[in-house]
Amino acid sequence: MSLKDVFLYLSENEVLNSAAQKYGLQLGAQSVVAGTNIDEVMESIKALNAQGISCTVDNLGEFVYDKEHALQAKDNILQVIERIHTEGVDAHISLKPSQLGQDIDEAFCYDNLYDIVKAAHAHGIFVNFDMENYARLHSSFTFMERLLEQFDNVGTVIQAYFFEAMDNLEKYKDVRLRIVKGAYKESADVAYQSKLDIDQNYVKLIEYHLLHGKFTSIATHDHNVIEHVKQFVAQHDIPKDQFEFQMLYGFRKEMQLQLAAEGYNFCTYLPFGNDWYGYFMRRLAERPQNVALVTNELLTKKTKTLLAVGAGAFILGRLSKK
Rank of each mutant, 00 (worst) to 15 (best):
48 L>C: 03
45 I>M: 03
42 M>R: 09
31 S>L: 01
47 A>P: 12
52 G>P: 13
43 E>Y: 09
30 Q>M: 09
53 I>S: 06
44 S>Y: 01
31 S>C: 08
54 S>I: 12
39 D>C: 08
42 M>K: 11
52 G>K: 10
29 A>W: 08
49 N>W: 05
45 I>D: 08
53 I>E: 11
48 L>T: 02
52 G>W: 12
38 I>K: 04
46 K>Q: 11
50 A>T: 12
54 S>E: 10
31 S>N: 10
36 T>V: 05
47 A>G: 13
60 L>D: 03
31 S>A: 11
52 G>F: 11
40 E>A: 00
60 L>K: 04
41 V>S: 01
30 Q>V: 04
33 V>S: 00
45 I>N: 10
34 A>H: 00
44 S>K: 06
55 C>N: 10
28 G>K: 06
34 A>W: 01
53 I>H: 14
42 M>P: 11
58 D>K: 06
40 E>L: 01
31 S>W: 03
50 A>H: 09
49 N>E: 06
51 Q>I: 09
58 D>P: 03
37 N>L: 07
52 G>A: 14
36 T>A: 12
37 N>E: 14
51 Q>E: 13
40 E>Y: 01
30 Q>G: 11
44 S>G: 03
29 A>C: 14
34 A>Q: 00
50 A>M: 07
43 E>S: 15
53 I>A: 07
33 V>I: 04
41 V>F: 00
36 T>M: 06
56 T>Y: 15
41 V>G: 01
31 S>I: 10
50 A>L: 10
36 T>W: 04
47 A>T: 07
45 I>A: 15
39 D>Y: 13
31 S>F: 02
45 I>Y: 01
46 K>A: 10
29 A>L: 14
59 N>F: 13
48 L>N: 06
55 C>D: 09
38 I>L: 07
